[in-house]
């Protein structure tokens, strides 16, 4: 029985890094994490965050990081950390809800993240952006920035 358990554990250990690699490719999960043994395979993740409040007339206002409240700072730091490790699997709902709760002037908030990495083909720095608009009703919709 214990022999079977051991074999099962070893097979899982041997197969999991392949699944972890798939997660890194599909959702930009940090290769260094999640037990895939890909430490030092790529530079550590670099992620930038931008919050844009959307007024009732549709105009967007970038929320200056220096103007974040302590709670917004905590939520943003938590989200950035999760986004760095879990890539696009990490959702910004908690951050968006916190911002909307503190800023009644906005009808929704756009969470914009940019994840950088080195492209193995060109060896140039490249990035992937995500803009998600979070409404007060909890709906999440992709947001197309005006300048494309």
């Amino acid at each position: 029985m214990k022999r079977r358990v051991l074999k099962g554990v070893l097979v899982a250990l041997a197969l999991w890094p392949a699944a972890q690699f798939a997660l890194t490719q599909a959702w930009a999960v940090n290769p260094w994490k999640l037990f895939g043994f890909a430490m030092y395979s790529v530079p550590g993740p670099r992620v930038e965050l931008e919050l844009i409040g959307v007024l009732p007339d549709g105009r967007g206002m970038r929320i200056d990081r220096r103007a974040y409240s302590p709670r917004e700072h905590r939520l943003a730091s938590r989200f950035l950390s999760y986004r760095s490790e879990l890539g696009f699997l990490a959702r910004g709902d908690e951050l968006a809800d916190g911002v909307l709760a503190l800023r009644p002037e906005f009808e929704s908030v756009v969470v914009h993240t940019r994840r950088y990495w080195i492209d193995p083909e060109t060896a140039l720095v490249t990035s992937r952006d995500e803009h998600i608009r979070h409404g007060r009703d909890g709906r999440r919709t992709p947001f197309e920035p005006p300048d494309g």
């Binding site: 070893l10 250990l13 041997a14 890094p17 690699f21 890194t24 290769p31 895939g36 043994f37 890909a38 430490m39 030092y40 395979s41 790529v42 530079p43 080195i118 193995p120 083909e121 060896a123």
Partner: peptide
Amino acid sequence: VAVIVFFWAGAQKALHGLYFRGEF
């Protein structure tokens, strides 16, 4: 466990593609 960890440490470096020309 030691074998699997070492094997994957190497395989992942190849899979991510930043070792062939010394990018990392």
